[in-house]
């Protein structure tokens, strides 16, 4: 009996450790970031200039936030329609043959391809093409959006197709029995029923895109003083790339280092909002399904 208790305690500790890790990360980041936020307040989010080396330093994050949203927004705009179409095929048309298993495996593979590899391909393949086609640098919102779309697409496909598959068969039978064609059934019955799941997949995809670092970093150009972009060919900085670029320049205990942690806090908030939103949407759905 004794070993049973020991194992129970040991596994309990393992389970508890994840809580500990989260507290450690959150606590540390908040501890460093919050005093900064308190000091600079809203001007951190609404300021137009990011000049950490100026005297006095300026920490305006607005252009970076807009840059982040435009790159991720473009990525979702590109990935969502394709992703939902692909999900419809997987859930409704593909049957259960070899093709479906192949597509699913390829999708999972694409999720896993290291983002630095995608960034590298973007850098040596996409950026020169964009520079040649549109002139300018090639490093742009467009480049970042395309690379991110590749990373977001599989997420949208996976979650959407799960949502579509979860629509009860009876809905389809009823619609088909009424004489509707397959596409009519999908459009009028299945998609409306899976709407919230699909929405959740898009929101989660957006959250993923905002948190993504390497692939974006390598192709968006990262101007020294970010400005509010006016075209998708403009160079931008994103929240994550700012951390990578500046982490080893920021002196310990300086406002610049705290500013990076404050960006971490902003990223926390964004991802928390995104995940809660998706959770809320999916939660409603899951209830309806009775699971």
């Amino acid at each position: 009996m004794k070993i049973d208790d020991a194992v129970k305690i040991l596994t309990f500790l393992c389970a508890g450790s994840s809580i500990l890790v989260v507290f450690l990360i959150f606590g540390y980041t908040l501890l460093e970031g919050l005093p900064f936020l308190a000091k600079y307040g809203l001007s951190f989010l609404t300021g137009l200039y990011w000049k950490p080396y100026a005297d006095p330093p300026q920490f305006g994050l607005l252009p970076t936030v807009i840059g982040t949203l435009s790159v991720s927004g473009l990525a979702i705009l590109l990935a969502a329609p394709m992703g939902v179409l692909a999900a419809i095929y997987l859930a409704e048309y593909s049957g259960s043959g070899l093709l479906r298993s192949f597509i699913e495996s390829a999708t999972q593979l694409l999720v896993g391809i290291p983002s630095v590899v995608l960034g590298f391909v973007g850098l040596v393949f996409l950026v020169p093409i964009l520079a040649e086609t549109f002139g300018g640098w090639g490093f742009s919102i467009l480049a970042g959006g395309i690379v991110l779309a590749v990373m977001t697409l599989p997420h949208v496909i996976c979650i959407s197709s799960d949502a579509i598959k979860a629509v009860p068969r009876e809905y389809r039978y009823a619609s088909l029995a009424l004489g509707a064609s397959k596409w009519q059934t999908i459009r009028r019955v299945v998609l409306p029923a899976a709407k919230s799941g699909i929405l959740a997949s898009i929101i989660l995809g957006l959250g993923n895109a905002i948190g993504e670092t390497m692939a974006v970093l390598m192709v968006v150009g990262n101007p020294e003083v970010p400005y509010i972009p006016t075209s998708i060919l403009d160079r931008v900085r994103v929240l994550t790339s700012t951390i990578v670029i500046e982490f080893n320049y920021a002196v310990w205990g300086s406002d610049q280092m705290r500013a990076l942690f404050a960006i971490g806090v902003v990223l926390f908030i964004i991802t928390a909002v995104v995940n809660l939103l998706a959770f809320h949407i999916l939660g409603g759905r899951i209830h309806a399904k009775g699971i």
Binding site: P128, A131, W137, F139, G221, N222, P223, E224, V225, Y227, R235, I245
Partner: peptide, 20 residues
């Protein structure tokens, strides 16, 4: 100028100039 493209490190500047 703030419009200038920033490249971190000598090798990256050299490659960027050689590419453009």
């Amino acid at each position: 100028s703030a419009e200038a493209m920033v490249q971190q490190g000598n090798p990256k500047v050299r490659a960027a100039v050689a590419n453009d």
